[in-house]
Each structure stands twice: as structure tokens, then as C-alpha cells.
Nucleic acid binder design. Structure first.
Lengths: 180, 180
DNA sequence: TGTCTCATGTAATCCGTTACATGATTGG
DNA sequence: CCAATCATGTAACGGATTACATGAGACA
């Protein structure tokens, strides 16, 4: 699966929920998929043009703000892409890199980094509750909702793991600091 | 902090542990930092040449297999880079993207994806124990070790969180499957 | 009228992987 | 002497961000 298909997948998937403009699509990806996905305008618009040329999406009506919608062919392509093996992204974690070379950085600075990471995880956790409530309280319960909640749950598990690790790590850093 | 500095950081950091050839550096990054970092030859060699031109690293001896070593200036630069704010990488999680659009994929296929993810997390967990033992049993206990263990601990927390999430998710998928 | 948000696009640039090319060294 | 590993590099390509450019519509 070529890398480009990853963006195609996100775009087609977004439109499978409902017709949208490119602008709204980008907002939806940022707001709803933001915890595990991101796309920029520079990717979304060329991809949409591309998909339109292939007949996988079409614009509902004319004019600048006409939303894009999936065609039948587009839905087929989406299902094909979803069935492709998951691509393992090159993960790069700047925090871990700094901690690994933490001796050069000093225990005190490492502490601050870990505190920051814990704070961010705590804020995320709050966000997840908000999103979960939004999904569960939507008037029209979409068939997609149960799946969406699975990804929220993953975010919650991940955030809680980060917080637990951070607390342990702060203790460990105290020991390191004390022994120098 | 430019993106390129991220590779510089990893290279300088690697050499802060000890002199190495580019080849060995790549292996070390793959084997030791592999859980949260990756570099390819195409990045490492140009970066090393670059750093040598700037006098931040130097080769010990002549010849093809002469290892690179940090200079004093290089160590300074490393400390400077480490102190820069952590760069938030564009995270893209293909598994989550598929689950989010899981209705199009079908609950059974989603199940398999989650099973695969759990299996991988379990294998990682075993790996972490092996690495932890290696670090703790090294004859010469390096001052870096306590910091290395912090990153192993993060990996363990993350893997355990993935396993717990997967188990919950498998139950949830059964419910979804049952209700269709 | 002016400003904010909506909406679309493009060009420059950077980063990173992959594939290719080359040759030295080591061990069987 | 042959194969595998060590060791270094480069060129092509693709993907992604960023900044720039443009303009419509809403509303105050």
C-alpha cells in the first residue's frame, strides 16, 4: 500500500460519514480523528481533485462551497483500502529520545519534561470524556458510533498509561538525582 | 527546531555513549532505540558527513572503518539540542483509522486487526523484559542505564495498555457483531 | 466598509525511505 | 576463492508541512 493511499483512506473514510467540503473535512479530521491522525490542506485538496478525476467522489451541486460526496466506486475503493494491511508508521518519540540521553540533559530537566507529558495526558483524558459524551448524546445515533468509541477507548487507555508511567518515572528520577 | 535536527540529535546522542561507525550506529539505533526511534542509512551517513564538516564529530584514526566520536563542540551541541522543546510528531495510527471506519470493514475483520495488535504488544512485552535484563546485567554499569530503563518502562506501560484495551475491545466487537 | 470565517488551491521545501552502487574484510 | 557481513555513499522518488495567494460570504 503506497503511502499516498493513507491520505486517500482518511479522505474517503471521512466522506463515508457524510458529504462535506474539503474545508469541513479538514476540521472533522482535526477535531474527531485528531488523536491519531492529521492531514493538512496541502494534502486534502489535491487528493480530493484526484479522487474526483477518478470518479471516486463527486460534488453535490455547483459552486465553490458544493460538498464532496462518495460515489459507489468510491465506497468500493474505501472498502478495498481498509482491507489492506495496516502500515506501520515510523514512530519517533522526541520525549523518549531525550530521556534516553537524559544524563546529558540532567535529571531536573527530565523531571520537567515528564511533568509536561503527564499534564498533557491529563488534559487529553478530559477531552476524551467530552468527546465520548458528545458521541453518546447525539440525537441521531449513527451506526458508526460503536466503532468511534473503540478509538476513544484506546486514547483513554493510552493516556492513563502515560500518567501511570510518569508518576513512576518521577520517583525514579528523584532516586537518580539523589544518588549523584 | 528544524526537523533535520531530530536526526542530528539521535546521531550525536548515539555517539555520546561511545565512538561508533555509521554502520554500528544504525544497528544501535535499530536495536536499542527501535521502540521509539528509527533512522535509515540514507539519513545517517549524510548527517555524519555534515557533522564532521562542522567539527561536531571526528573520526578516530584513518581508514574506512574508523569510528566516529563526539568532539567537545559536539557534546555541547547535543546538550543544546536536548534542551530544545520536544517536537510533536505527526502521529498517524493506521489501526485506529481502520477501526474508526470499522462499519465499512466489518466487525469480524476488525476483530482480527485487534487480535494482531494484541499479539504484537505481547511480543513487545517479552522483548522489553529481555532488554531490561541485558541492561541490568551488563558488567560495567554505565551512568546512562537508569535513563535507559525509563524508556523501557514507558514501552512496558504502553504495551500493557494496548493489551488491556484489546481485551476490552474484543468484547465490545462481539456485542456489535451480535446486534447486527 | 472592514474583518472574520469559509473555501480552494499552489509552490517551495524538507524529510525520509528505498534502491542502487561500490568495495573492504572476514570466515568457511 | 566465495559468500556473508561490514561499511559508505548517492540518486530518485514520494509524501507532508508550510507559507503564500486568492476570493466569496456573513455580519457588525
Amino acid at each position: 500500500m503506497a503511502r499516498s493511499s493513507q491520505t486517500e483512506l482518511a479522505v474517503l473514510g471521512g466522506l463515508s460519514v457524510g458529504p462535506m467540503t474539503g474545508y469541513a473535512l479538514r476540521q472533522a479530521i482535526r477535531d474527531v480523528l485528531g488523536h491519531f491522525w492529521r492531514e493538512s490542506f496541502g494534502q486534502i485538496y489535491p487528493t480530493l481533485s484526484n479522487l474526483e478525476r477518478q470518479g471516486l467522489v463527486t460534488r453535490l451541486g455547483a459552486g465553490r462551497s458544493a460538498p464532496y460526496a462518495l460515489t459507489d466506486a468510491g465506497l468500493g475503493r474505501l472498502r478495498g483500502l481498509l482491507a489492506q494491511p495496516v502500515q506501520h508508521l515510523p514512530q519517533r518519540n522526541g520525549l523518549m529520545l531525550r530521556l534516553f540521553f537524559g544524563r546529558q540533559l540532567g535529571a531536573a530537566t527530565c523531571r520537567q519534561l515528564v511533568l509536561d507529558a503527564r499534564g498533557e495526558a491529563e488534559r487529553e483524558l478530559v477531552q476524551f470524556v467530552v468527546i465520548r459524551d458528545e458521541i453518546e448524546s447525539e440525537v441521531k445515533t449513527e451506526a458508526d458510533h460503536p466503532y468511534w468509541l473503540l478509538t476513544i477507548s484506546a486514547g483513554e487507555h493510552s493516556a492513563r498509561a502515560t500518567i501511570a508511567w510518569a508518576n513512576q518515572t518521577l520517583v525514579a528520577l528523584d532516586r537518580i538525582e539523589g544518588s549523584t
